[in-house]
Amino acid sequence: MPDETTAVGDENAAGAEPTPDRAADEEEEVAEAGQRRVHATRGLVDLLLDMAEDAEPTSMNLVLAPTPAGEFDEDLGLDPETPVLTHFYMAEAGQSVSAVFGMDLGTPAGRGRARFLTHPQGPFELTERDDLAAVVLLAVPPWERRTLAAFDRAGRKLELVVLDAEPPQEELG
């Protein structure tokens, strides 16, 4: 069932430093949700690593979104409220409006408390230049699971659990 690996990641959606209250709330959410664990589907992890390899030498910065474990068709063996990273949003979406009004319209409301970042030239740790979120998945070459890790906003490494599970089908409208 779950294949445990390590992961990196935390950026905020707007790229600005979070307010202390918001940062504390998000870190508390992460701690409560997984006791220092981050869950992601194998499909998402594989896709992110493939995209990172294709984008090299350009770095990537994507907003990640979860699906509650209870919404999956199969029992994941997790609390139904446990967030499982399943989707990403392109950072460019809504960028022109964001530049003018300072609002992130590329990410649906209530989504995006996690980010996927790449450091094509290293280092394999969060830096002061990174956009932070409650959880950050960070990848470096050679773009394999062993070079993917999860971090909290403070740069502390979290356990990344990769699940062999398909997210539920979403319907439009």
Rank of each mutant, 00 (worst) to 15 (best):
L49T: 00
T58L: 14
G9K: 02
A13K: 14
Q121H: 12
E56P: 00
F72M: 06
P68R: 07
A99K: 11
R37Y: 06
E159Y: 01
L126T: 01
F72N: 00
A33N: 14
E166R: 09
R129G: 13
T82S: 06
D131T: 14
F151H: 05
V63C: 09
R115W: 07
A109E: 15
A133D: 10
N61H: 11
A23W: 07
A134E: 10
A99S: 12
L172N: 10
A149Y: 04
P141M: 07
P66W: 03
L85D: 02
E71K: 12
L148P: 02
L138T: 00
L163K: 00
P123D: 06
A14W: 10
L44Y: 01
N61W: 13
L148K: 00
P80C: 05
D46E: 15
R37F: 06
A91T: 12
M1K: 12
M90K: 13
L137H: 01
L132G: 10
E92V: 14
L49V: 00
E159K: 11
D50I: 01
G77K: 04
V100R: 13
M60N: 02
V84N: 03
D50E: 15
S59C: 07
P66G: 08
V161F: 02
L132Y: 06
A23Q: 14
Y89L: 09
P68K: 08
V140K: 00
L126I: 00
L44T: 03
Q169L: 13
A16P: 01
E56H: 15
P120S: 04
F88D: 01
Q169T: 14
T127Q: 08
M1A: 15
A33Y: 02
V38H: 00
P2A: 14
E170W: 11
L64H: 00
A23S: 11
R36A: 14
G9R: 00
E71C: 07
T127R: 06
E144S: 15
E29I: 09
L163N: 01
T107I: 09
D104R: 15
E28V: 10
A31T: 11
A114F: 04
E11F: 14
G34A: 05
F72T: 04
V100A: 15
R156H: 11
A91Y: 08
E11C: 12
D75V: 06
G106S: 03
Q35R: 13
T41I: 03
D50R: 14
E144A: 15
R146A: 13
A165P: 02
P142L: 05
E159I: 10
A99E: 15
A114C: 08
E125H: 08
D46H: 05
H39K: 05
T5L: 13
R22Y: 14
